[in-house]
């Protein structure tokens, strides 16, 4: 689905992504882990068109998408969420969701004045869809609240909801579980699995919570210092010497060992 070939992103002398190559299989929920500063978010930013690549290519379904802008990628079905949830703070949660599907008739100045009927029909359908999504995410009671005022975890749900408003092909989730309590995390996890199974979304997610990763992701890709360090099933990765060295740390290694010995 997504192939990244020898991607580089340099900020001056600092090589945030330094020759990363990886593949995300269609229909998978791929986890992306690595220590802070490994270049995960930068990699996301480059793939999603928020930053230009220094070198290398990104392919989507065999077609090169390097250097496309975020809104062009959106139309190809590539979506992302942010590490710190973004929202249109002055609009209600429902309006936030209704903003998403692009290419609505109301987007041209001409239709704004002369295509009222068509726009009204579209808005009605969108509104119903937005309410459906809010209900699915168990935040229907927030529909008329300003998005800027809901809690951090609820904003994360709203971000996930945004990807449900269109038929996305692949969604990049940047620490969707960070700063979210257990119950909400389970809701998010269930939603991800449901979207993956029922709607055929491919996911690639950056996560630090190993339990969450273990439950959802297969395979898991490990990044360190801008490169891909290892790839494999979550259980394998947690045993991998190099990964433990770079990311999980000695403390955990001893724990894993103790568990393995027991």
């Amino acid at each position: 689905m997504i192939v990244v070939e020898d991607l580089h992103k340099h900020f001056g002398g600092f090589h945030a992504v330094d020759g990363a190559s990886l593949e995300i299989a269609k229909g998978s929920i791929t986890g992306l882990i690595g220590p802070n500063g490994a270049g995960k978010t930068t990699l996301f930013n480059v793939i999603a068109g928020n930053l230009p690549a220094t070198a290398g290519r990104v392919l989507m379904n065999g077609e090169e998408i390097t250097g496309l802008t975020p809104h062009e990628l959106f139309h190809k079905g590539l979506l992302r969420t942010f590490q710190i949830a973004h929202e249109f703070s002055s609009m209600t949660c429902r309006e936030n969701l209704m903003m998403v599907p692009a290419g609505q008739s109301g987007e041209t100045l001409w239709n704004t004045w002369f295509g009222r009927k068509r726009i009204a029909d579209e808005e009605r359908a969108l509104r119903a869809k937005a309410d459906e999504v809010l209900e699915f995410l168990t935040i229907e009671h927030l529909a008329d609240h300003k998005a800027g005022q809901v809690s951090g975890g609820q904003k994360k749900l709203l971000e996930l909801g945004r990807t449900m408003m269109v038929d996305a092909q692949i969604v990049f989730l940047d620490e969707v579980g960070a700063g979210v309590n257990r119950t909400l995390l389970n809701t998010i996890g269930d939603a991800i699995v449901w979207l993956n199974k029922e709607r055929g979304y491919t996911f690639c997610m950056i996560e630090h919570d190993m339990d969450f990763i273990g439950r959802l992701c297969d395979p898991v890709i490990v990044m360190a210092e801008g490169k891909v360090l290892a790839e494999g099933a979550a259980s394998e990765i947690m045993q991998n010497e190099a990964v433990i060295e770079a990311y999980l740390g000695r403390g955990l290694k001893n724990k894993v060992k103790a568990e393995a010995d027991a």
Binding site: T69, P70, F74, L79, H86, E87, M99, V100, R162
Partner: peptide, 8 residues
């Protein structure tokens, strides 16, 4: 950023 990601 979000507007761009919403395909605007």
């Amino acid at each position: 950023d979000l507007a761009l990601l919403s395909g605007i």
